[in-house]
Design a protein around this nucleic acid. Structure first.
Length: 672
RNA sequence: GGCGGUGUAGCUCAGGUGGUUAGAGCGACGGUCUCAUAAUCCGUAGGUCGUUGGUUCGAGUCCAACCGCCGCCA
C-alpha cells in the first residue's frame, strides 16, 4: 500500500499582495511535497487564500470595490506568483468559494449537534480591528494585539465550549510530543492551555462579509473557525463527494507561521474533537522572515516581493537561499546581499561549477560518454572515500530533511560537493588526460566516473529544493527526466557507463556586482505602482515613494518660496497632514525630550519619535487624536526610526502643545 | 508582572550526561592549480565563550544574582 501525505500551508489573508514571507512558507511546503512524491507517497499539497473578515470588507469598500471583486483580484495575484515559482500545489482553496462555505457550515452544525455551541451574550471590550474580545476593564482600554482603543459592546454571540477541552488537549500534547514543533512553541501552547481555557466566541454580527451561521443569518462565523476549516473543506468535507477527505484526512502536516500557533494548536484540534473528527498529525511553526533584521512592514516600506528575485536569479536561487540561510523554526533575515553571496558561493561556485568541470572533462576525454575503468588496479583509496562520503551524505541528508532541518540538510549535501571538488583537485584528472597509456586512461575513467556519480547523487537529493537547476543537470548527465527518479532507491553506482551526456551549459551563472542593484531597482520601481494598486492603504498611496526611500529616489526640490515668503497652494499640498490616534507612548531611554509613539492612521500603525516628553506624560497621550505629517521622510532618532512628525505649537521658551480637534474626526482624514 | 527561551570568532551558527591547545561555514588576507562559471584547492585569522559570584581537582558546559535580547501569557 502506498503511503499518503497531506500537507498544507496556511491560507493567506488577502489584505496584502504576496511577498517573500508568503513565498517562504509555500516554498518549504513545496519542498516537502516534492520530496514525498519522489519517495513514492501519494501526496496532496494544499494552499489557498483566506478572504473573509472585517479587514477585507473595509479594504474593498475604501477601494470602491465590492468585496468579492477585491478578493478575486488579490487571490489571483497569489496564484499567479505560485505559478511563476513552479510551486506544485494540488489544490487552491478560497474561503469565498461555495465548496468551502458549505463545508464550514457543515462543521458548525456537527459541532452544534454535539452540544458544543451555545448562544450567550457578551458585554465588554471589543477590538474592531482584530475582531477580538478583549479581557480588559474600562472603555477604550487598548487592544492587546494592536494597541488600538477597544470599544464597549453588548452583543449576543454563539460560543464554543472551549473550556471543556483543556484536559483532552493536554493529553494530546503529552501523548504526541511531536504534535507541535519546534519545542519552544510547544511550551507556549502548554502554558497557555494549562492556564485555563475560556469559551470562545465564534460568531460576529457587526459585519456581514463572512459565512452565515446556519439557521441564523444575522451572524457570520468567526474568521478563524472559517479559515481553519479550509483544511478539510478543500478535501470535500461536507459535500456529496468527500472521497479526498476520506483518503487524505487527517493531515500529516500543517505548516504555519509562529504568529498563528494558538489557533492551530489549540482551537483547531478542539474544533475537530468537538466534531468527532480525526486530528492532524503534526503542526510545524516556522519563524518570521525579516528584512535586514527588521520586520517587514508597510510603514517601513521594506516589504520584498519575490518577483525581482525570480527575474534576476531565478526561483531556485530564492528557494535555496531561504531554506539554507534560515534556521527553520527561527526568525531569519533576508537581504539581497546575503542572497547573492549564497548564490555565488554555494550554487555557482559549488554545485554549478562541479557540474561544469565534471561534465566538460567527460566530454573532452571520453567523447561525452560516462566512462568506466577497465583495470581494477586503477582504483585508489581516495575514490572509496568519496563513495563512503556520498553514502553517508544520503543517509544524513534524508534524516535531517525529514525533520525539516533544511538548513543543516543542505549544509550536509554541500559537504559532498566540497569533498568532490577537493577530490578532483587532488587527483588532477587533467594531468592524466594528457597520457595515452591504458593505466592512465583507466585512472582517469575512475576519477570522472566517481565525480559524475557523486554529482548525480547530490542532484537527486536536492531536487526537491532546487527543482529547475537539478532537472537541467540531470538532463546534462544524460539521465532524462528527473521526475522519474525513485529517491528511496538512490544509492552509489547507479550511473551506467556509456550514458551519453546531454548538451552542457552552466546552470548557475555567476552573479556580478550589478545583480543586487538590478533587483533593488525593480523593487523600488514596483513600490509606487503597488501603492496605487493597494487601494486599501490610502495613506501609503498618498505617500510618494521618494518619501519612503530617500536614498533610492532623488528628493523633490525644495518648495520654491516667493520673495515675500508666500507659498503656492501646490507647495502646501505637498505636505500630507493626517489625523491619527496615539495607541502607545513611552519614554525613549536616555533621552529627556523624546517619546516613542505608535500612532494609528486608520490604515496603518506607525512609529513616530516626538520631542514632547517635557510637555506630556506618555500615559496621558494614549487614545488622543493628533495631527501627523504623514509623508515626512523617515529619520532615525536615538536609534529609533521615526516615520512622520506630530504637529504641535511651539511657543518661545514654553512647552509644546499638541494640535487637536474639538469635534470628532475619523482616523486618517487629511487636513487641507 | 508570570512562564519559557536565548546571549560562543566580523557574520550565521555547532558545541549529549563538566576534563588535554573552544569548533564549522561564509566573509577577509596570503598562496596554489588550470579541468571548470577569475571558479577549485591549501594556509592564516588568536574569540574576557553577556557580567559577577559560587559548586568542583577542573566549567563555554552545573547553581545563583544581574544585564541584554526574544517569545507566550496577564
Amino acid at each position: 500500500m502506498t503511503s499518503r501525505f497531506y500537507i498544507t500551508t496556511p491560507i493567506y489573508y488577502v489584505n496584502a499582495r504576496p511577498h517573500i514571507g508568503h513565498a517562504y512558507t509555500t516554498i518549504a511546503c513545496d519542498t516537502i511535497a516534492r520530496r514525498q512524491r519522489m519517495l513514492g507517497a501519494d501526496t496532496y499539497f494544499l494552499t489557498g487564500t483566506d478572504e473573509h473578515g472585517v479587514h477585507v470588507e473595509r479594504a474593498a469598500l475604501s477601494a470602491g470595490q465590492a468585496p468579492q471583486q477585491w478578493v478575486d483580484e488579490v487571490s489571483s495575484a497569489f496564484r499567479a506568483l505560485w505559478e511563476r515559482m513552479h510551486l506544485t500545489y494540488d489544490d487552491f482553496i478560497r474561503t469565498t468559494s461555495e465548496r468551502h462555505k458549505r463545508g464550514v457550515q457543515q462543521l458548525w452544525r456537527r459541532i452544534r449537534d454535539n452540544g458544543y455551541i451555545y448562544k450567550g451574550s457578551y458585554s465588554g471590550q471589543y477590538c474592531v480591528f482584530d475582531e477580538l474580545y478583549v479581557d480588559a476593564v474600562g472603555a477604550g482600554a487598548p487592544c492587546p494585539e494592536c494597541g488600538r482603543p477597544t470599544e464597549t459592546v453588548h452583543e449576543e454571540n454563539y460560543f464554543f465550549k472551549l473550556s471543556e477541552f483543556s484536559g483532552k488537549l493536554l493529553k494530546l500534547y503529552t501523548e504526541q510530543p511531536d504534535f507541535i514543533r519546534p519545542e519552544t512553541r510547544r511550551n507556549e501552547v502548554l502554558s497557555f492551555v494549562r492556564s485555563g481555557l475560556r469559551d470562545l466566541s465564534i460568531s460576529r454580527s457587526t459585519f456581514t462579509w463572512g459565512v452565515p451561521v446556519p439557521d441564523d443569518a444575522g451572524h457570520v462565523i468567526y474568521v478563524w473557525l472559517d479559515a481553519l476549516s479550509n483544511y478539510i473543506t478543500a478535501l470535500g468535507y461536507g459535500s456529496d463527494d468527500d472521497g479526498k477527505f476520506q483518503k487524505y484526512w487527517p493531515a500529516d502536516l500543517h505548516m504555519i507561521g509562529k504568529e498563528i500557533v494558538r489557533f492551530h494548536c489549540v482551537y483547531w484540534p478542539a474544533f475537530l474533537m468537538a466534531a468527532n473528527l480525526p486530528l492532524p498529525k503534526a503542526i510545524v511553526a516556522h519563524g518570521w522572515l525579516l528584512f535586514e533584521e527588521n520586520k517587514m512592514s508597510k510603514s517601513r516600506g521594506n516589504i520584498v516581493r519575490a518577483e525581482s528575485i525570480l527575474d534576476v536569479l531565478g526561483s531556485d536561487a530564492l528557494r535555496y537561499f531561504l531554506l539554507r540561510e534560515v534556521v527553520f523554526g527561527q526568525d531569519g533575515s533576508f537581504s539581497f546581499d546575503a542572497l547573492v553571496q549564497r548564490y555565488n558561493a554555494d550554487l555557482a561556485n559549488g554545485l554549478g561549477n562541479l557540474a561544469s568541470r565534471t561534465l566538460t572533462m567527460i566530454q573532452r576525454y571520453f567523447h561525452g560518454e560516462i566512462p568506466y575503468p577497465s583495470h581494477a588496479a586503477a582504483r585508489k583509496p581516495a575514490d572509496d572515500e568519496i563513495v563512503a562520503i556520498a553514502e553517508k551524505t544520503i543517509a544524513d541528508y534524508s534524516t535531517l530533511v525529514d525533520q525539516y532541518h533544511f538548513s543543516r540538510a543542505l549544509e550536509c549535501a554541500w559537504s559532498l560537493v566540497a569533498a568532490v571538488n577537493k577530490y578532483i583537485v587532488e587527483t588532477e584528472p587533467w594531468t592524466l588526460g594528457e597520457q595515452q597509456d591504458e593505466m592512465s586512461r583507466s585512472r582517469l575513467a575512475t576519477i570522472l566516473y566517481t565525480s559524475a556519480e557523486a554529482l548525480r547523487i547530490v542532484t537527486a537529493m536536492v531536487h526537491a529544493v532546487i527543482p529547475d537547476a537539478t532537472a537541467r543537470i540531470w538532463a546534462q548527465l544524460g539521465l532524462g527526466d528527473i521526475k522519474k527518479l525513485a529517491l528511496r532507491e538512490l544509492k552509489w553506482g547507479q550511473l551506467r557507463l556509456g550514458t551519453k551526456l546531454g548538451s552542457i551549459e552552466p546552470v548557475f551563472p555567476r552573479a556580478d556586482k550589478m545583480t543586487i542593484e538590478r533587483m533593488q531597482k525593480m523593487e523600488d520601481q514596483q513600490r509606487p505602482t503597488l501603492a496605487t494598486a493597494e487601494k486599501s492603504e490610502p495613506a501609503t498611496q498618498a505617500q510618494p515613494a521618494a518619501a519612503q526611500r530617500p536614498t533610492a529616489t532623488p528628493l523633490p526640490p525644495p518648495a520654491s518660496a516667493s520673495p515675500d515668503g508666500q507659498i503656492s497652494i501646490d507647495d502646501f499640498a505637498k505636505v500630507e497632514l493626517r489625523v491619527a490616534q496615539v495607541k502607545l507612548a513611552e519614554k525613549v531611554k536616555g533621552a529627556d525630550k523624546l517619546l516613542r509613539l505608535e500612532v494609528d492612521l486608520g490604515t496603518e500603525v506607525r512609529q513616530i519619535v516626538a520631542g514632547i516628553a517635557e510637555a506630556y506624560l506618555p500615559e496621558t497621550l494614549i487614545g488622543r487624536k493628533v495631527v501627523v505629517v504623514a509623508n515626512l521622510a523617515p529619520r532615525k532618532l536615538r536609534g529609533l526610526e521615526s516615520n512622520g512628525m506630530i504637529v504641535a505649537a511651539s511657543p518661545e521658551g514654553g512647552k509644546a502643545v499638541l494640535c487637536g480637534f474639538l469635534e470628532d474626526v475619523p482616523l486618517g482624514s487629511r487636513l487641507k
